[in-house]
């Protein structure tokens, strides 16, 4: 399936072999099934993350939210739930590969746009439909963290830590309240969001473009 989409594919049948190939072949992206025969998939992510920023896309069963959170916290970029619909994996791969470009833009302090919203990170200015919207400092920080990881799922823990500080990681209600406020300010219909997306059980994702897959 992936070969047909012009990806070159190298398979590894164990965690050890995967790590070995990740370093020897230096791939553009790693697809990692958390159910490994020889070791914990989370450890594999940690190990690879010690020396590489290669995007890691985790494959895990539906309902295994805790595993996904651990994988994301360990440095995975994204996940796909098994069973997945045809096309879902390649859509996620495309999205992961696309992110590099966005990251560069962010670093440069340019304007990032999604939907009707444009955010100028250098000037800390947010416009919706051309008119300026006031965000509270925490709302802005939240948006900033999400933008820095645009397209990727950021776990609740990561968001709480980066916006409110490590002492608040166990108070996800804050996060939900502020996400709600941010949606009210930036989304056309907060109950039907197209950019500030909740991944239940895991975290949040900011989508810059509405994906068509």
């Amino acid at each position: 399936m992936l070969t047909a989409e012009d990806y070159r594919l190298h398979e590894a049948i164990s965690g050890e072999e995967g790590i070995a190939q990740a370093s020897s072949r230096n791939p553009d992206l790693i697809l990692l099934d958390l159910g490994l025969p020889d070791r914990d998939g989370i450890d594999v992510i940690r190990e690879i993350r010690q020396w590489s920023h290669i995007p890691i896309l985790v494959i895990s069963a539906r309902g295994q939210e805790q595993d996904k959170i651990k994988a994301l916290d360990a440095g995975a970029d994204d996940y796909v739930s098994k069973p997945f619909a045809p096309g879902e994996v390649s859509a996620r791969i495309r999205a992961s590969l696309r992110r590099a470009a966005v990251l560069d833009k962010n670093e440069a302090g340019e304007t990032v746009e999604f939907g009707n919203t444009s955010v100028n990170l250098a000037a800390r200015r947010v416009l919706v439909g051309g008119s300026e919207v006031h965000l509270t400092p925490n709302e802005y920080k939240l948006l900033q963290v999400l933008l820095r990881h645009a397209g990727r799922v950021v776990t609740q823990r990561q968001l709480l830590k980066q916006v409110w500080g490590p002492e608040h990681v166990n108070e996800p209600q804050y996060l939900r309240v502020f996400m709600g406020q941010l949606r009210r300010k930036l989304e056309a219909d907060p109950a039907h969001p197209t950019h500030l997306i909740t991944e239940p059980g895991i975290g949040y994702r900011l989508l810059l473009e509405t994906e068509h897959n």
Binding site: E65, Q173, A191, H192, P193, T194, T198, E199, P200
Partner: peptide, 21 residues
């Protein structure tokens, strides 16, 4: 169950997003 406090709006929004196709 892994219960916690959630605004329903968020849950509905997530469902609608994941069903977009």
């Amino acid at each position: 169950l892994r219960k916690d406090w959630f605004p329903l709006e968020e849950i509905v929004g997530a469902a609608l997003y994941h069903m977009k196709r």
